[in-house]
Computed example of a mutant assay.
Amino acid sequence: RARGRLLVVAAITLATWAHVGSPDTYFEGAAGPYPVRIIVRNPGVVPGLVQISVRLLAPRSVQRVLVLPVYWDPMTAAPPPPDVAQRVPGDATLYSAALWLMRDGSYSVRVTVEGSEGTGVVLVPVMAVATGRLPLAKSLAAGLVALGALLLAGAITIVGAAVRESVLEPGVAPDGRRIWRARLAMAAGAALLAFASLGGRAWWNGAYRSGLYRPFHATATVRGTGARPVLRLAIDDTAWINPQRQWTPLVPDHGHLMHLFLVRDSALDAFAHLHPLPHDSATFEADLPPLPPGGYRVYADIVHESGFAQTLLTSVDVALLAGAWRPSDPDDAWIETGKREAGRGKTDSAVLSDGSTMTWQRGDSALVVNRDASLTFTVARPDGRGTR
């Protein structure tokens, strides 16, 4: 079991440069008898139109592919009928669909594949969050400003006409007093509309932007450097520690409330996968393994009761540690791979604790952002008599 954990640790160490915080979701697995790769690209705004691609990874006869977003809260209305994903012209294995996510929070995209081997269903968890605003074309912005100015002028004119002439008989000209009252009302209306416009701008720059999603702020520290140094991670974000918070409690993911990863920042040559235990609702602690000293990036994965998953980001400095390590959780593991020439050659290897060698088969293809890529690893036995 320990060897299996180290295999996973080594594999993650070799590919540390992942895009943490990407709003997109990638899934590779099986929908019943159909192996699939599903990519959900989130626009970063809510409501927003997500792009879903479903690729069949094995030759199968498929009649249709259905996709349906399901919100996590059972109190919401029943989901609509699923949409039929369209086959992409020129690629018989790729299907595409676009769906609206109307609320922020946790969704499951239900993908149904119907074919010659029956019906297969798989649920893909998706986080719908607003992380920014979409750019507005200058021509469209100019048109909207012109229309807005026309509407404001029309509203002010209506106010003036209502005060000046609304109670007069047809054909009766307003006197000077009514004309001055109308002008004062128009000035007051213009001031009120200007105040409303400034209020909307302030709301956009303040309340709305503050509602854009960002991971919880967290702070990592090392307590003690003696026989049992302890890594403490505190979620000190006001959005979490506020008693009025709207976030649901944490739930275990793969048996643990938190999965914490430490990666040595200078050379990416040391890695730890720990499972801190809760000290209270905002503080987690784990015994620190004897990692080499230096600065470390800290990534902490948590999952809420709603299914919403977050990766907390911070950093910590680790001094020279001494003494035997007693893991606070049986699944804790760490590895020091030694210095390596990152990015050179066609393979990248790490020697595991039992003498086996894990190698990342890079191949000749370059890794390109937003393009599918398959990662292949081989493990050679210590005696070199075989790989797996």
Results as ranks from 00 to 15, higher is better:
P135N: 09
G154I: 09
D24F: 05
H217Q: 12
R340A: 11
W247F: 15
L274S: 08
R209W: 00
H275K: 01
W100Q: 10
S328V: 06
D383P: 02
L150D: 05
E341N: 13
V50E: 10
Q246V: 11
D237P: 12
P170M: 05
A98V: 05
Q246L: 15
G90M: 09
G224H: 07
F216R: 00
H304C: 01
G226L: 07
S61P: 01
S53I: 07
R214Q: 09
N205A: 11
A18G: 05
A153K: 09
A366S: 08
L134Y: 00
A153G: 14
A227G: 08
P43F: 08
V46S: 02
A187I: 07
I235T: 00
P330Y: 08
R177N: 11
W334N: 09
D83S: 15
W240I: 08
W180I: 15
A373Y: 04
A227F: 03
D253W: 07
Q310E: 15
G48Y: 08
V251E: 12
P229G: 02
D383C: 07
A207K: 15
R5C: 02
F271P: 06
A220W: 00
W17G: 08
Q86E: 13
D73Y: 07
L313W: 06
A218W: 02
V163N: 02
T93A: 15
S281K: 13
V40C: 05
S53W: 09
A319Q: 15
Y299V: 00
R340L: 05
W203R: 12
G4T: 07
G199Y: 11
G323L: 05
T376Y: 05
T347I: 13
M102C: 01
P276T: 03
P135D: 04
M358Y: 13
F308L: 15
L101M: 15
A286E: 01
V20T: 14
R5H: 09
A342S: 04
D331N: 14
G148F: 08
S374M: 06
D269E: 10
R60N: 15
G115Y: 00
A153Q: 12
L7V: 12
D269T: 03
T378P: 00
V230W: 00
L140Y: 02
P82W: 12
G143D: 14
T387W: 03
G154Y: 06
V45M: 08
A30G: 04
V20S: 01
A282S: 14
D265P: 02
T337C: 06
V318Q: 02
P382I: 07
R381C: 00
V303W: 01
V369N: 12
M127F: 04
D332S: 14
S266E: 15
A142K: 11
G154K: 02
R164P: 01
A11H: 13
A149H: 06
P330Q: 13
V222Q: 06
R55K: 15
G171V: 10
E341L: 13
E341W: 06
R223I: 14
P293W: 01
K339T: 02
V251A: 12
G224I: 11
K138W: 04
S166G: 02
T219E: 11
G105R: 09
A366F: 14
A185G: 04
A78Q: 14
G199R: 12
A130E: 15
S349E: 13
T337Y: 00
G338Q: 00
R344G: 01
V62M: 03
R228S: 13
T248D: 12
D317E: 13
T347A: 07
W240F: 08
A324L: 10
